[in-house]
Design a protein around this nucleic acid. Structure first.
Lengths: 133, 133
DNA sequence: GTCCATGCAAACGATTTGCATGCGT
DNA sequence: ACGCATGCAAATCGTTTGCATGGAC
């Protein structure tokens, strides 16, 4: 996944008119570190270094950063929503056993024959390498 | 969409070990008629001809018929889950204005280069013909 | 008669909201 | 100093569960 420094995160937020609060930076840092992570797990992870943070704050910030298109929501068939740093369009491979999410490259042009498409969400379900062992 | 008679619905249910109750048939009929419909709307529609039906019954039956792979759940970015009669793999085109869902044919073989895939969920977002006018 | 399905009400989990306080700019 | 952000608690929404009753086989 792309390296995202604290500085670039602050700029990303400011560019969208959002203040770079410690909570927001902590959330972004956790998402960037994990790749794909649920609200609950963001909360648990951040609470270690930041015991005062509230779940409501996480939800509010997830919402505003999603609206600002800084992060992206992944909705799979069997687990709670997960979040990732928004980047170039790609597919998600979902393991049907462990629910892990893996990014896969796709070529947007492959979908041109479907007409005028603004956005593509492609979820591929199977068994990941780890679970296949 | 495929024609689905009352008789074939009954057989579909029995084949999966589910009793063909009037409630179940009404739910299936509504899903077949609408193509893609939410729990709330199933409830509202059925309540007209079937005032005693309860939301819990709809939820329970949606769950059992989903488990039995008679119906399929569609989860889009901005609206509540919708349900359709399960059929051959296809994509869903979602209108970003009116949230309508439209089926689009896809060729499973086009996804062979992604590896060992059991299931494909492809959501394409854009503006539907009606909303483009 | 047994078993599964229904329908009501209560419980539940995830998310949202209101509001007083605090902090960044 | 102002306005947005935080954190708590309460409210809300969608969905699930328990349980007593009813109906299908």
């Amino acid at each position: 996944m792309d390296k995202l420094t604290s500085t670039s995160m602050q700029e990303l937020l400011k560019a969208q008119g959002l203040k770079a609060t410690p909570q927001r930076l902590a959330i972004l840092k956790e998402i960037a570190k994990e790749g794909h992570i649920s609200v609950d797990n963001i909360y648990l992870k951040i609470k270690n270094n930041f015991p005062s943070i509230s779940l409501a704050t996480i939800y509010k910030n997830i919402k505003s950063m999603k609206d600002a298109e800084i992060i992206y929501e992944i909705n799979t068939q069997d687990s709670k929503p997960k979040y990732e740093i928004k980047k170039k369009t790609h597919a998600h491979f979902i393991c049907q056993l462990c629910n892990s999410v893996e990014d896969m490259e796709i070529n947007k042009d492959d979908f041109k024959n479907y007409g005028d498409i603004n956005e593509i969400d492609l979820y591929l379900y199977g068994i990941c390498k780890k679970c296949k062992i």
